[in-house]
Amino acid sequence: MQNYKTNCFNSDNYSIKCGDKSINFEKPIVMGILNLTPDSFYDGGSYLDKTSILKRSEQIISEGAKIIDLGAYSTRPGAAIVTEREELERMLPALEFICKEFPSAILSIDTFRSEVARKVVAEFGPCIINDISGGTMDDNMFALIGELKIPYIMMHIQGQPQTMQQNPVYVDLMKEVLSFFRSRIKKLNDLGATDIILDPGFGFGKTLDHNYEILSKLQDFNAFQLPILAGISRKSMIYKFLGGDPSSSLNGTTALHMAALQKGAAVLRTHDVKEAFECVQLYSKIKSFKE
């Protein structure tokens, strides 16, 4: 790992602005998942009407999450392709409900399409854009982020969601993922965007061992001095190793959340906000005696 130092992200002095709202990273934060899709791998089809969307949003906020992450296009391995129109038809009504009921909520839009991002911001104001492709699936995304000056979650992926888990191969996993971030961060910075969160992309073009190698070396990403997001919640890296399925993977999720926090994660993206928030509270209590 030449030219990289570990543990150099100073969370005490880092914050991001999202319109008139801000997020500081004095301690790690939780992002609650709200899937607006019928086919997401864990809770697909659970939040498709106004009542369930608002109930889930209230739960996410009340259980301690700083951010609600809305996704209208399932990107699980082998997921069906969704048109831009379908994505917007799912996303825009949900945003209208949430923004009216919870106007102070910080929202993240899980999309790799620049036009979806543009329309959301035009209609509902600044939000975070959570892009599973790191700008590789829409050539206009980076220019848009630079133009709008909105926060951006840059995820690493190898391949496309429909095929990414068909024998992913790396010559040097960490070197390649770090190189991806180095070049993509520079490109985004050159366009005027600086509020960036990094997501190494657990389960996105990675084998089981790739996922655990990244988790074991998560601190290496602190070299970029940007917050790291861990998207581990109920993923196959847990139940394919321990057995079971997504519904039985909460305990494994919590265990890996603590490991991610110890390795420098600043954001836990999760289906189970209460448990993740408690994990952050316990981690922060332990860490308070290490200074």
Rank of each mutant, 00 (worst) to 15 (best):
F180S: 03
K21D: 04
Q281L: 14
V116T: 15
R118D: 09
G252W: 07
L242V: 15
P227V: 02
K287I: 07
I98T: 07
L107D: 04
D49V: 12
L70K: 05
N251R: 14
E84W: 01
A65D: 05
G134L: 04
E58C: 14
D131L: 10
K217T: 04
S183C: 11
N7C: 00
F221C: 05
D43P: 01
Y14L: 09
K119I: 08
D195F: 01
K175S: 12
I185Q: 09
N211R: 03
I132G: 00
K217R: 15
R118A: 10
T111Q: 08
V267I: 15
D209K: 14
D69S: 10
L191S: 04
S62G: 06
T253F: 14
H156P: 03
C279N: 02
V171G: 08
K50A: 05
T136I: 04
T194M: 06
P38F: 07
K175F: 06
L107Q: 05
K263Q: 06
V273F: 15
C279W: 00
K119F: 03
E86S: 15
N140Y: 05
D43A: 06
G203A: 04
A65T: 05
M154Q: 10
N24W: 01
F112T: 03
M258N: 11
F102D: 04
H156G: 03
N24S: 13
F102N: 05
F41W: 04
I185L: 15
L144H: 08
R113P: 06
L261K: 04
